[in-house]
């Protein structure tokens, strides 16, 4: 590898003055007189942007399960989970984004286990009041969401790679909550908050007073590792076990 500029140029510099700079300037002028314009008349014509452009977050209302991973992943805390009516009139939990605070990092789309959150190429977000910048779940919907706007989390486990398996995975496929049996009081709060109803309370025995002892049982295929059960547990009996 050789230097491209240093070997060629400083030797050629002929000091100051003389006709050479003028000739060079003339040459450059002739060369650059005719060329395509690079200016874009912005409000009337817009630059092409690819689909994976990270503008404001978008939401596919029907896909969302209201797990709240986006809320916790958000670095600026611009996402809050609110309760709204879905098409059937049922109350569901969906994210609401305060776009005025959003830093367009795309973490919500990246960590969404069901790809309901997407990035959108929508960047013209100016409004007259701050309140208008709050995007409720219905307003978050983006017309013409394509597959490119989804961000897929494709991580590889080191343990898999050591075995020679190259299969992408993500934390919502591998990490699962585990129960510390001694701490659990069987309040079944975890089962109530689980967005995917992966937790089911099962009776494991009876205590001295003759009442049922309940313990949560996890359906690993349904769980998305949203950690809501871990946060809600009053006795900190649940903990996420990471698979690496």
């Amino acid at each position: 590898m050789a230097m491209k500029y240093l070997h060629k140029y400083p030797k050629k510099f002929r000091g100051t003055g003389g006709i050479r700079p003028m000739l060079q300037a003339l040459k450059t002028m002739v060369k650059t007189t005719v060329h395509r314009p690079v200016t874009i008349m912005y409000p009337y014509e817009k630059e092409w942007i690819p689909d994976n452009y990270r503008g404001r977050p978008g939401l596919r209302f029907d896909r969302c399960i209201g797990c709240g991973i986006c809320e916790r992943a958000c670095p600026t805390k611009c996402i809050t989970i609110v309760e709204v009516e879905d098409d059937d009139g049922k109350i569901v939990r969906r994210p609401q984004v305060y776009v005025g605070r959003c830093m367009m990092c795309g973490y919500c789309a990246e960590y969404c286990p069901v790809d309901a959150m997407t990035t959108t190429p929508d960047y013209e977000l100016a409004e007259f009041t701050r309140k208008d910048l709050i995007y409720d779940p219905r307003r978050l919907a983006f017309e013409g969401t394509t597959e490119m706007m989804e961000v897929h989390l494709e991580e590889h486990l080191q343990s898999n790679l050591d075995k020679g398996i190259e299969k992408p995975t993500a934390f919502f496929d591998t990490d699962r909550p585990v129960l510390d049996d001694n701490l659990c009081i069987g309040c079944s709060r975890c089962a109530k908050v689980c967005p995917t109803s992966a937790i089911e309370m099962v009776v494991v025995g009876q205590n001295a007073k003759g009442r049922d002892i309940k313990r949560p049982k996890l359906d690993s295929t349904k769980c998305v590792c949203c950690e809501r059960c871990v946060i809600e547990c009053p006795k900190d009996a649940l903990e996420i076990e990471e698979v690496l």
Partner: peptide, 18 residues
Amino acid sequence: CGQRLTTNYPRIGGVRND
């Protein structure tokens, strides 16, 4: 990576996307 300046591209253990 979807943005001009605030790239947010590297991740701990790799990069955001291929």
